[in-house]
Each structure stands twice: as structure tokens, then as C-alpha cells.
Amino acid sequence: MIRMRMMVMTGLLLLGGQATALEFKQVSATESSVTFAYKQMGVPLEGKFNQFTAQISFDPARLNLAQARIDIGVSSIDTGSAEADEEVLGKLWFNAKSHPVASFVASGIRAVGANRYEATGRLSIKGKTLDISAPVTFQASGTRGVFDGSFTLKRLDYAIGEGAWADVSTVANDIQIRFHLVVNATSGKK
């Protein structure tokens, strides 16, 4: 009898999309993406990073235990033009030789609405680390969870684009970073 009730309840919870007992940990690299959008001479452009790893553990019912870390291989950048891909690895931009990895380490996540969260953490690029926060949505269906979020950074805060490139009327200071992370739950029980 009690078992029955449990099963029904679990079923209801799953149907409601609130898989509270699941911990989402397995990041699907092929389905996830880290992209960015910016303006150059007023022209909207987009790019992406082809290589990154994400370590996530997330249980919507236990936010205080949530963890996230994303490491991005800077030299996997795709700006949309080969000439620019080469340029941005140089000293004035990412200085990829000395700083090959950009990373985000979450320090906390709090719920701000249904499936909506606010993630905070520290973003390190080119040897500079700054606190950031980003709105994130989380949608789960069964054991498949999807995070979507974006935030805007000022590239000059990280000295991305120095010298002549510091001119933000050519390449805008605002860079929007968007992440789409597909994370599967490991086990239904904890």
C-alpha cells in the first residue's frame, strides 16, 4: 500500500516535470554549446567555442549542493572568419599561449521562479577573475535536463582586445555569452 502510494507520487512528480529526486550530472558534450554574440561596426555577429568541458551536479530540490564548473579551450574559438580566429588568439586578445583556458566556477544558484534560477560564480579569462551572475533556465523531461542561460561581459574588463583593439566603437565592449547545456541524470534514487 505504501509502496503503491510512493509509485503514484513519483509518477505525478515526473509528469509535473519536477524530477526532484534526480541529480543531473552527465553533460552531453555533443548537444551542449557555448556561443557568443557581439557587434562589430554596428553589425551583429556570432561565434562559438568548439571545445569545452562542463562538470555539473544539480538537483533542483537541493540547490545548496549544486556545483558547476565550465572550462573552455580558448583556441577552439570560431568567430566566423578564419582571419579573426587567428587574430584573437594573439597577445592583444586572449593570449591563448599563456592563458589557454577560460573557466567559470559557480559559487551558488538560487531559484527566482518556476524553472528559473540565478547563478553566480567567478569567471576567469586571460588571468583575470571577476564575479558574474547569470539568469539560467532549467527544463527537465525525464532524465534529460537542459540549462539555458546568458550574460553579458565587458571584454575590456578582461583586457580582451588591447592596444588599437581597445577601441570599442569598432568591436563593441559588450559580449553576450550564451550557454546551452544538456545534462542527464545519473540515477533516480539518492
Partner: peptide, 11 residues
């Protein structure tokens, strides 16, 4: 070579 000037001139 790629530079802000080049991007401006292209525009």
C-alpha cells in the same frame, strides 16, 4: 592586415 582600421574601411 586585420586591424580596427581595416574593419572600419570595410564598413
Amino acid at each position: 592586415p586585420l586591424s580596427p582600421t581595416k574593419l572600419q574601411l570595410y564598413s
